[in-house]
Amino acid sequence: MENTIATQANLHRRVGLVFKYLLLSVLAFIVIFPFILGLWTSFLPTTQIAKGALHGTMSWQNYVDAFTQTPILRYLLNSLVISVVQMFAHLFFASIAAYAFVFLEFKYRDLLFYVVLATMMLPFEAEVIPNFQTARTLHLLNHYAVMIIPFLTSAFGIFMLRQAFKQIPLDLKESADVDGLSHWQFYWKVALPYSRISILTLAAYSFLGSWNQYLWPMLTTFTNRLRPVQDGLRQLHSEETATNWGLIQASAAIVVIPTLIVLFIGQHYFKSGLNEGSVK
């Protein structure tokens, strides 16, 4: 008798497990389906895709075409340069500003901080008109610089690093003062290393933010030599007028695969970051 109950419970558990895996698989399939389809079609000849067929001779032809006939590599390079430069510049300017708000004594410090904080409420999207005109007046249009300079600093970055710097024990600063460390030295040798998690997070945020810029580069660049990758894809999509789907899918894949690889490799980091931030 007891035996049967145990078997039943076991069976129950097993059915439950199968159900769990089924659910997980279905959900995973739904989430990843657009990727799979995009990748799959990027290997098919466009003539097949245009007929609505999802089978055909697989080949690298679309990738060859994307690399040889479109400036996709140039787009990627542009984005890489812009994002890296912007990331470092943003980290630098936001961190020194945050440093000032935490470790320096000066008049109106808190007032100024609130002024900075207030800018978080002003969306860049609502300011593109004057910003465009400013960029034009400063002769920045059609340069890498135009995609970097407006984002050299941000209220968000300053806010975040200020929070991080505030975690630094006061004794450290005091003993640094006693040792005669200058602000630059303390900033470089103590403040930055101590807050490296926040710095890294802000770096990721800044890099991704720059990488995903769409509207601003679209307004301020007029040549493929400078276009970053998001606007490059827009350009390709518009040039091919949705007729050369194979090429478009291949270009999209070329853009997404590096980020996916980084994401999968970075899993560990993301998770530890999460543990740190988990709600207690």
Binding site: V85, A89, Y144, A145, S182, W184, L226
Partner: peptide, 27 residues
């Protein structure tokens, strides 16, 4: 005098500006 002992930093900053400027004018 603030800059003096931190010439490396100054250099770094200048390099950064040079990079940005370089991109702008290189084009």
């Amino acid at each position: 005098s603030i800059f003096k002992p931190h010439w490396r930093w100054g250099l770094g900053l200048l390099a950064l500006l040079a990079i940005i400027g370089g991109f702008a004018y290189g084009n």
